[in-house]
Amino acid sequence: MKCNILTFGIARDIVKTSQLELNLEGEQTIRNLKEKLVNQFPEFEKLRHYSIAVNAEYRLDDFILNEGDEIAIIPPVSGG
């Protein structure tokens, strides 16, 4: 499954684009997506943490991704 992933803040700096394309094989969970991300961009492991949002909602690692989902990497937020 091809995922189009939105990136913000330091996540965009790490991947050097605001829309990252990743190909997910096998289990299409957030856990799998995160493993793939870290393999490709080890700098994600240095962050305090990061979350994945699917269709603008925070989702946990077991969440299953579907074709066409809007996926976003949410690095530590710092609004206010």
Partner: peptide, 8 residues
Amino acid sequence: LKETVPIW
């Protein structure tokens, strides 16, 4: 807001 809102 400082914990949950995706603003950087």
